[in-house]
Computed example of a mutant assay.
Amino acid sequence: MLTIGTIVMGAEDVRRAAEFWGGALGYVPRDGEVDDDWTVLVPAGGGPGLALGRSVTPVQERPRVHLDLYAADAEEQAAEVARLVALGARHVDWDSYPEDPDFVVLADTEGNRFCVIDATHG
């Protein structure tokens, strides 16, 4: 059976992206250091890694694939959104929010979109 080993994201500045995602997720470079063109970040306790590869293609306004990061509840979601913004993420104007959303759309330091989900939301 196959499992997801690594999620790959493009980045214009791999070092900046690695600093953001390392801080956001508590991941560390698999090989102990970050390269200018490619790095893989891994969690301490196992699970999928996050690979960052240098890319010059523009970020998609509406990406077909993105990360959903789960928070335990609405309070944790708000705290995590604030922490991620402090690390360099930014809020994205998202015209497709439902009336009572369980997610907040952010962009990382490279403009890649991701969501922070309240896992207890209805």
Rank of each mutant, 00 (worst) to 15 (best):
D68N: 02
T39Q: 03
S55F: 06
D118C: 02
H66I: 09
P63N: 10
S96M: 13
V28H: 14
D37H: 09
P98K: 13
G10H: 00
G49S: 05
V59G: 00
G10E: 13
M9A: 14
V65A: 11
V40N: 03
I7K: 04
M9G: 06
P43E: 08
H121A: 13
L52F: 10
E33M: 10
F114N: 06
G45V: 04
A17R: 02
P29T: 05
V8I: 14
D35G: 01
L69V: 15
L52E: 03
D108L: 05
V14R: 03
P58W: 11
G47L: 00
D37N: 07
W21H: 09
R16G: 07
W38D: 08
E19A: 13
G88R: 09
I117H: 12
V59K: 04
G10P: 01
P43N: 12
V34L: 02
D118F: 04
G122K: 15
G23Y: 08
L106H: 08
A24M: 09
H91G: 10
A89V: 02
R54W: 12
D118I: 09
H91I: 11
E19Q: 13
Q77T: 08
G45T: 15
T120G: 10
H91T: 13
G122C: 01
G23S: 06
G32F: 02
A74W: 10
G122F: 14
G46E: 02
G22K: 02
E99F: 09
D95I: 11
Q77K: 12
A18W: 07
D73S: 06
S96P: 07
D118W: 12
R62T: 15
H66C: 00
V81A: 09
V28Q: 09
A24F: 05
G10R: 00
T39C: 12
R90A: 13
H121C: 07
G32T: 08
G23Q: 05
E19I: 11
H66A: 07
A51I: 07
R30G: 05
D102Y: 14
L106A: 09
Q60V: 08
D100A: 14
R16A: 15
E80H: 04
F114D: 11
A71N: 06
R16T: 12
L106T: 05
P58C: 02
L106D: 06
H121P: 01
R15S: 02
R83V: 13
V56F: 10
E61L: 05
R113I: 15
L2S: 14
G53C: 14
A18C: 10
R113Q: 14
L84G: 03
E76M: 00
Y97D: 06
D36R: 12
R30P: 01
V81H: 04
A78P: 00
G26I: 09
G26M: 04
V85N: 03
H66S: 07
R62I: 15
D13P: 01
M1D: 12
E80D: 15
A119E: 15
G47M: 01
D118A: 02
